[in-house]
Design a protein around this nucleic acid. Sequence first.
RNA 1: GUCCCCGUAGCUCAAUGGACAGAGCGCAGGCCUCCGAAGCCUGAGAUUGAGGUUCGAUUCCUCAUGGGGACACCA
Length: 536
Amino acid sequence: MIRAELRSAIAASAARLFGKEQVPDFSLEAPENPEHGDYAANIALLLAKKLGKNPLEVADALAADLKNSQWAASVAGPGFLNFKISPMFLEKEFKEILKRKEKYGSAPAKSKKIQVEFISANPTGPLTLANGRGGFLGDALANIFLRAGYKTEREYYVNDAGNQIVTLGKSLLAVAGVIPEEEQFYKGEYIKTWAAGHASIIKKFKNNPESLGKAAAEDFLKNIKKVIEKKSGIRFDRYTSEDRDIHKKGFAKKAFELFQKKGLMYEKEGAQWLKTTDFGDDKDRVLMTSEGYPTYFLADAGHYLETKLRKFDAKINIVGPDHYGYVKRIQAAAEIIGLEESEVIVTQAIRLMHGTEEVKMSKRKGEFVEFEELVDEVGHDTARYFFLEKSPHTHIDFDLNLARERSTKNPVYYIQYAYVRAQSILKKAESSRPKSKRAGAKKTLELLQTVEERALVKKLIQFPEIIEDTAKDFAVHRVTRYLLLLARAFHNFYEKNRVITADADLTRARIELDKAVVIVLGIALDVLGVSKPKKM
RNA sequence: GUCCCCGUAGCUCAAUGGACAGAGCGCAGGCCUCCGAAGCCUGAGAUUGAGGUUCGAUUCCUCAUGGGGACACCA
């Protein structure tokens, strides 16, 4: 990767001039503006501040020192170092795309094991839009980790034990008229529908809400899996059952004992508490109720312990906004358990709009747009792109009518169109290729000199950096952004440069470029989980 | 009341403290005798407000203001 080499060359130069301990953590970016070179470093600005020197002088000194390396820097603006990629590097990196094909941008395998837990919606009803948002995010993020060389597991944690299952059973009995309604019962249309369709089961379990709840939960889960896997292309490696995999296998108990052994627990009013306040939580949390039931939190701690015991180094947990209050306590548990790296990504809320009016969503009351409905309406590619192009911190105002209307103008088509177009050219080139007498002596990039060609090549070789950065900061929307820019670079190239020409050498070079576009667009679409159409 | 997230163009969203704040949609114009016009080109159009830190702030801090969410021996 070019950027990594350049970075170490700059750091080495700075260390030579100012001492190793002075080298700051500087940025090295590919600027949008081509006048700012292929890469721009702000190291001189940071160093100047640290050393109390003039930024321009520092920049000049660095540029002079770098003259001895294969990197030519120019000083610009307040003290940026701008770099041009040398033709040799560019050629080498470009050929790498054609050589490695769909492996391009894949880092060598590392030993690090990452688990991405996402969706994990309770099987007490259908998936919501927020579930879908987390679903696409987790799916794409896992793809990125795989590309970055990590061993990656996608996990759906199923809360199929405890209170809510009983509540689900009771809710069903209530709509069936067996028992009276209560405030906390689930009341959505889906409850009525299920009850109406499963009269015999309800009858069978009329005195046993827990068994009824379990039966219904299994059914709901089956449906959830259908929506996730068949309709949305979201994949999971593992569905972990709270009941079977955590409680019955003793992990909740093990976590409890671990906390006890570490002396982080105490009893108060008959309940068992964990001192999560020692780890940044605003209050301590109950592990075991005064009636002797394990809390959801204890099961979760058991779940984290189980993950740790399965030798994971890191866990990324993607949760909805309603779980925000849960972050600190679960991070406390992760720390006690000794999970090396634990991240919780909280996706922000989705407001349901009807024109300019907000429609209050409530799963319990059954007022919400089902994720399945969205996917059915606009298709899975559009739905995916719609969520993935936004940072998870953004609050989304969602209008189903607008989504429907806009689905045909979605940027995802712009990208897919570029992909289809590029392939279509390849096909054409194959059938009309002039019999090339001899391969030209010139290197590919010596033949690709127009502004559009250069811009496209540089965009292409940026891809490994996009993967590398995203694996670090989880900002998946960077990839959608990149795809859009890459597609644009290709469309621009297409408008102004004919691939198939009378010049055999030039044609060959442009076909290579076109091939590289197909490869990189294809990989990036795969990473996001968006389909690669053959035609549109 | 306490805590978290968000206020950027008419709309939906970008921008590790950096150079002229970028896209898509929409709007106004222009481009197919030629590899796919679901494309390309041109134009109009924005950082909620007030202070502060900094050589430099959409970004960090404080206050104000608007919106969303979380604050159980529920999950």
